[in-house]
Design a binder for these strands. Structure first.
Length: 723
DNA sequence: AGCACGCCGACT
DNA sequence: GTCGGCGTGCTC
């Protein structure tokens, strides 16, 4: 129990201690310090600290003069163990269980209640799901305050200012416009693009009538009037027509721009708010306030927008959930899809998970009966998608993409040549850059650096006569010798997009070549008959669709050492193929990968079938997403102790973990150059036991952080990229 | 993390 | 007899 003196130091008020306490009066009868709020004198505050064992609310007393401003959800400054820290008021209560006199709130940073009850619950659920801290999730969920923006916003909302001062930004329904006002043409526009999709029109109608249906949706097209942004916009308009708000999360800003354009056709601009870190902190906070106040009711953005405080949320949408950009790069690495699923569950909203391909996670939702599949009828597929050809043959066995590019397989060559007469032709390639990696000329194994095992390459700028260098540690390798066959001659391996473009430009002389990759990504290309060479994921949208597409490097994508290699490759193929015109319009996709299940899925345009089969395989192997996993990474002894502690705590509850490891961590990319002795243990557990497991993981992490006897370990849930 | 309290060696 | 080493433990 704290002494009266320590409680007093918390005030930050210099001067003598109140005599009543020195005389030993019970603290409860005469609390020291300023007079307190008469009603709900206790504020539960989530203090912003990065320490896992302090990741819970702490109680503070509410001075009378802060009573009005100190509403639930506002940012405050508090004294915490001698330091002044910021935090959020979680709620106001009448009593505290702290067991001693409370320190008063220091000040209210802003009267705007930026953390709404719904978002607070969501943040708690996400933290629990990922065994992370509430504070880590809060940092992602609530954008940093921009004082200037806030001032302008409160000034602009003069009629509502009084209410904002009381912590309720608006009366709640200000932004709720009738369908007529919002520009939604009910009925007619509602089902336009969705016709031809099984369950599609019903889904949209259900939204319009105020229902909360849940769908896994596989739209066919990535360009034009029937493209996915239109269909999502129609769903959003439908839910707006029911008076509710909507939230759409997309992987990157190019998707966001397309979506925004489509939404502007069905809703007034004032109803839409863009929430993305790319736009900068100021516009981001302005959009956030518009959503918070309810003056905009449709939030669109990248992953962190999943936490947007949309008023009366009726629909959450996630586009292309397989894209790894949906994974937050800060602890606890939450996936936007999972955040939205938790949210749909907690707020009882409708849910639309859409993508040209289907992830195994979404397949699981379909098979569990949680969501309804919305897929194109075969007739619509036939008249919408391009023809797909596979040219897997002896060319691939040469193991050299250069050979493929310089002497394209007959079918691919003809497709490109003929397509270029009718429009742009997309060439999808694997890697960016103009630094061709090197392989041994005799055995074709990649040439590796003798000091760090990194890949050797010839620097792009210095020309072909340059000495090969390691791409990770820059060690020159003038006397390279192959460790596999002792060969001494190098040759160029898989090449970058610029080189491919150059080769193709030569092959199709006279045609323009456009490249899109890395930091030179193009969002759209026109209708000109040009070759468009793009790295995977950087494919521009062609205004009137591509006449043809060549999907190269398929085999190297499929061969990646990753559980998701197949699923991810298929997703990228479908995303590219969806940009191509219908077969009836001459649209043709040529894929140069050896025959496999993945290629078959594209040939038959059957993303659902592929997901079904892939999930079945994961179930047999008991791998995610058939089960859930946690990875524990760090120094060997710390990992071993941590895992043992977790198993020990779970034992009484009858939860049995399947574990794998500890195994050394294999780092990729530039990080691999540095020394790393970390190991990783994987824990596998069924969904039904996930609550117990994450609870124990969290408490074990907190206990370890409090004790500080061991080096810290990183705990990560469902980080499927580690497999 | 900080910053307290707490129990054993070199100093006035 | 006091100052201070940093070993546990708590933070409303």
């Amino acid at each position: 129990m704290a002494t009266p003196e320590t409680v007093h130091t918390g005030h930050g008020v210099p001067g003598p201690v109140q005599p009543s306490l020195l005389q030993g009066f019970p603290a409860a009868t005469r609390p020291p310090g300023p007079p307190l709020a008469a009603h709900l004198p206790v504020a539960r505050v989530q203090v912003e600290t990065s320490l896992p064992h302090l990741d819970r609310p702490f109680d503070y007393s509410v001075p009378a003069e802060l009573d009005q401003a100190a509403q639930a959800g506002v940012r405050v400054k508090v004294r915490f163990n001698g330091q002044e820290l910021t935090g959020f008021i979680i709620e106001r209560t009448t009593e505290s269980d702290a067991g001693h006199t409370l320190v008063p709130l220091q000040k209210v940073i802003s009267p705007v209640a930026v953390l709404t009850p719904a978002v607070r619950d969501l943040v708690n659920a996400v933290a629990a799901r990922y065994a992370g801290t509430v504070n880590d999730v809060l940092r992602v969920a609530v954008p940093p305050r921009m004082a200037r923006v806030e001032k302008d916003f409160l000034a602009a909302a003069v009629p509502e200012a009084a209410e904002a001062q009381r912590g309720t930004p608006t009366a709640g329904k200000t932004g709720q416009s009738t369908p007529g006002e919002s520009g939604v043409a009910p009925g007619s526009s509602g089902e336009g693009g969705w016709a031809g999709y099984r369950n599609g029109p019903a889904f949209v109608r259900h939204l319009q009538e105020g229902g909360s249906p849940r769908a896994v949706f596989s739209p066919l097209q990535g360009y034009g009037q029937a493209a996915w942004p239109r269909l999502i916009a129609e769903a959003v308009a439908a839910v707006r027509a029911s008076g509710r708000g909507a939230l759409v999360v997309v992987p990157d800003y190019r998707d966001l721009d397309q979506l925004e354009q489509a939404l502007l056709d069905v809703l007034p601009a004032t109803d839409i708010a863009r929430l993305t870190a790319d736009d900068g902190p100021t516009p981001r906070y302005r959009s956030f306030l518009r959503i918070l106040a309810g003056s905009a009711r449709v939030a669109i953005g990248t992953r962190s927008a999943a936490f947007a405080p949309v008023q009366d949320l009726g629909l959450v949408v996630c586009w292309d959930d397989g894209n790894e950009l949906h994974i937050e790069q800060r602890s606890p690495y939450a996936h936007a899809r999972e955040v939205l699923l938790l949210r749909a569950d907690q707020e009882g909203t409708a849910c639309l998970m859409a993508g040209h391909a289907r992830s195994t996670e979404l397949q699981r939702l379909v098979e569990a009966g949680w969501a309804m599949p919305v897929e194109a009828e075969r007739a619509l597929v036939r008249r919408t998608v391009p023809r797909v050809l596979n040219t897997a043959d002896s060319f691939e066995q040469e193991r050299d993409r250069l050979a493929l590019v310089a002497r394209l397989p007959g079918a691919a060559w003809r497709a490109a040549k003929e397509g270029l007469e009718r429009g742009p032709v997309l060439v999808q390639v694997a890697r960016a850059g103009y630094a061709p990696s090197l392989v041994c000329e005799t055995c074709r194994e990649p040439a590796r650096c003798q000091s760090c095992r990194g890949p050797l390459a010839i620097g792009g700028a210095s020309g072909s006569s340059a000495i090969p260098q390691c791409r990770w540690c820059s060690t020159p390798a003038p006397d390279w010798q192959c460790v596999h066959c002792s060969g001494r001659k190098l040759r160029k391996g898989a090449t970058g997009v610029l080189r491919t473009a150059e080769e193709l430009g030569r092959a199709f002389s006279g045609k323009a070549v456009i490249t899109s990759s890395g930091d030179q990504v193009k969002a759209v290309v026109g209708t000109a008959n040009a070759l468009v060479v793009a790295t995977i994921g950087a494919e521009p949208v062609a205004e009137a669709g591509y006449a043809a597409a060549l999907l190269l490097d398929g085999d190297s994508l499929l061969r990646r050492e990753n559980l998701r290699a197949g699923e991810d490759t298929v997703r990228r193929w479908f995303n590219a193929a969806a940009l191509v015109r219908p077969a009836s319009d001459g649209g043709l996709v040529v894929i140069t990968a050896t025959e496999s299940v993945a290629v078959g899925a594209l040939l038959r345009w059957d993303p659902a079938g592929y997901a079904r089969r892939e999930l079945e395989l994961r179930m047999e192997l008991q791998l995610p997403p058939a089960v859930r996993i946690a990875s524990v990474t760090g120094p060997r002894t710390a990992v071993v102790h941590f895992t043992a502690a977790v198993e020990h705590q779970l034992d009484p509850s009858g939860v049995h973990l399947r574990t794998a490891g500890p195994a050394p961590v294999i780092l990729t990319g530039s990080a691999a150059a540095q020394q790393c002795d970390d190991v990783r243990t994987l824990l596998f557990f069924p969904y039904g036991q996930a609550g117990a497991v994450t609870r124990v993981l969290r408490s074990t992490k907190a206990a370890a952080a409090a004790k500080r006897t061991e080096e810290p370990v990183q705990v990560r849930l469902d980080g499927v990229d580690v497999l």
